[in-house]
Design a protein around this nucleic acid. Structure first.
Lengths: 196, 196
DNA sequence: CTCGAAGTACACCGGCCTGTGTACTTTTCG
DNA sequence: CGAAAAGTACACAGGCCGGTGTACTTCGAG
């Protein structure tokens, strides 16, 4: 496969191997020896780059794969595109659940090293949704972006439990409905929907 | 607190203690000794009732707290009621995330003992949503119930990461919108919303 | 009452996992 | 080229955890 890894890229390489293993088999279930083996290095070398497993976890989290969000186009199309990408992500070969959720579930006691990374990324995604909602001319961008966020997480979580992409489809249809409603002027026809 | 636990209730008591500890601190992080201590019994006694930790995990999962679903009322009100109960669940003292998701995240390798319980419960919830959607006269009960499912999971997952109940509120508003649309005859006004 | 089941107290094993010590070879770069 | 930095190979410590053995006491149902 990847014979001959340049020394200068070794550190990053280790992080990627760790990320994959942690994600696929769980943080607690994977020992440093396993990671060193798969990365084709010595445990000693691993500890040279990452003095503790916790720091390795943090590094792995930083390079964890994400759902790609569309970088251009009309706001509404970008939002919908994000959920379409999500569908692809969910059906990718080894999907096992939202990395954030999975890692968070295994990192309760630990104070901080990795948590902050997760929280920062989540905040970034929320910001993106809010910006899109605003640019799309939503009546209540805060509400819409919050709804999108929930749907996104929901599709990921539901996709964890069941292999298929039905959750992603359902989320996508819900997104289309909610976005259309929130950005259309006709929403005045249903003034009572969002309250009570 | 709970001095004097009846012998006949001991087994159930152990499962409850385990469920709480597993949920709050993680399955891997909690050892049998901890559980035995908190249950005020000997490790030996624990192993008398549950011959392995895996079986204890399964038992704990069976008694894990759930969101209560309304048992009576009009279908639409019951659906909405379910999401209101969810909001309460999320803001309950020690909420740390959807028990199913958390436990699943820590139980990859293990083949079966606990997984089946989780899957059965999820299927039950899905069935409940479908029945409600059908009774409410939804145009496409399969789609609506799938959407509700995704929103439910999403609220739980989002609620994990951030302490507040904003996700639950957002999910609730989305539910109201989607249910109203799906069950109203006026949805003919928006024939294009759910496709493409 | 009585006898077996249930519970106790405590020591102990074996495996796994994080992390280190050491003596050696290889690469990199000024 | 030559020295410092990086990597190797391997053994080993120390801790935690799941699970067992044993000899004893207590409970509770018939």
């Amino acid at each position: 496969m990847d014979l001959a890894i340049k020394r200068s890229e070794l550190k990053a390489h280790i992080a990627h191997v760790a990320a994959q293993l942690f994600y696929e088999e769980g943080i607690h279930a994977v020992g440093v020896d396993r990671i060193a083996d798969k990365a084709q290095i010595t445990k000693r070398t691993l500890y040279h780059h990452y003095p503790s497993k916790d720091q390795l976890i943090a590094a792995a989290l930083r390079v964890a794969p994400l759902v790609e969000f569309p970088r251009e186009g009309a706001p509404i199309e970008r939002i919908i595109g994000a959920f379409e990408m999500l569908g692809e992500f969910l059906t990718s070969s080894k999907y096992r659940g939202c990395p954030y959720i999975i890692f968070t579930a295994e990192l309760i006691e630990r104070g901080h090293p990795a948590r902050q990374i997760i929280e920062r990324r989540i905040e970034k995604r929320r910001g993106w949704f809010y910006e899109m909602a605003e640019r799309a001319g939503a009546a209540d961008p805060a509400l819409l972006s919050e709804q999108l966020d929930v749907l996104f997480d929901g599709a990921m979580a539901s996709g964890t439990k069941r292999g298929d992409l039905a959750p992603a489809k359902a989320a996508l249809s819900a997104v289309k409905t909610l976005v259309n409603l929130a950005t259309s002027t006709k929403d005045r026809l249903f003034p009572d929907l969002s309250k009570s």
